[in-house]
């Protein structure tokens, strides 16, 4: 009985291949969450392509059943889907979720990005069974996983997801400008060391997570030039995690301008903030190819 979380894409906005990003990776958003019964895939950025290859290898010819939850349909979260090889095999079944009654927007946009203007293979040619489903009221059960969704603050909107299974909890919350939710945002910009208070609803959503995978795209300095772009200061995620009693915080959606060294500096700043708050929170940078087991 275990819950596995594996990072396949940790970059935000646009893929960033090259030696400067080889440690943390250049693929865009994709995280795999796996239990005894369920395969859940959060976002289909370019990391989804390599996940597809590994799923085929693991399955060894057996049918694959997967559940895809997209935080939102910006490019860096859907671009890998046309290259997801398991979707081209007839024995496989994938379900794509919406989070309001009648919400098939993601499903429609995924198929739209495969129109011949954009891609040579039409969505209708995918031979796997691909169906749209809903988690009405933003909650439901997928196999042995209880799922909840919470709307976030991002241009065009986005969703955070909480997964609970076998007594473990993982929250995936990317593309969320937490700093715009602070009651006194200007004061927190003037004094970055001051505690940052996040809304109760968000704190309760995250409460008690064994792992919070959170968008921490910007350093404190970078954020001053990117207010309103839809992403927070990584250090604000630390305050959220501490307030919610999270055990481990994985900072993801690294800015495409950040080198591996920049990402490490960002994480050191987060760790320093946790120490300042006398918290034993574990903070690390989400990194492609790393898999955690929440036993």
């Amino acid at each position: 009985m275990s819950l596995f979380v594996k990072f396949w894409g940790t970059r935000g906005s646009i893929p960033t291949p090259g030696p400067a990003t080889s440690r943390y990776g250049g693929n865009t958003a994709c995280v795999e969450i796996r239990t005894d019964e369920a395969l859940l895939i959060c976002d289909g950025g370019t990391g989804l392509r390599e996940l597809g290859q590994e799923l085929l290898q693991r399955a060894g010819g057996a049918p694959i059943e997967g559940h895809l939850l997209f935080s939102h349909p910006h490019w860096d979260h859907i671009q890998g889907f046309p290259f997801f090889t398991p979707a081209y095999q007839p024995a496989n079944t994938f379900t794509i979720y919406g989070f309001k009654a009648g919400d098939q927007r993601i499903f429609q946009l995924l198929s739209g990005q495969m129109r011949s203007d954009y891609f040579p293979v039409d969505f209708s040619e995918l031979s796997a069974t691909i169906r749209a489903a809903e988690l009405p009221e933003g909650r439901g059960q997928i196999r042995d996983v209880a799922v909840r969704a919470l709307p976030q603050l991002h241009p065009g909107g986005s969703w955070a997801f909480a997964f609970e299974s076998q007594g473990r909890k993982v929250v995936y919350a990317t593309d969320h400008e937490l700093d715009l939710l602070l009651p006194d945002r200007d004061a927190s910009l003037r004094d970055p060391h001051a505690p940052r208070q996040l809304p109760d609803e968000l704190v309760e959503f995250v409460r008690g997570a064994d792992l919070l995978v959170a968008d921490g795209q910007y350093t404190d300095d970078e954020y001053r030039r990117k207010i309103g772009w839809g992403h927070p200061r990584a250090t604000t995620c630390v305050d959220l995690a501490i307030a919610a009693g999270v055990k481990q915080l994985a900072i993801t959606h690294h800015d495409p301008m950040q080198t591996d060294t920049d990402v490490e500096r960002k994480i050191y700043a987060c760790r320093a903030r946790a120490v300042l708050r006398a918290s034993d929170l574990v903070v690390f940078a989400a990194r492609e190819g790393v898999e955690l087991k929440l036993a």
Partner: peptide, 13 residues
């Protein structure tokens, strides 16, 4: 523990 974080598996750098 990979660089201080408990992991199940990882591509090494």
């Amino acid at each position: 523990y990979l660089n201080g974080v408990k992991i199940h598996s990882a591509v090494l750098r």
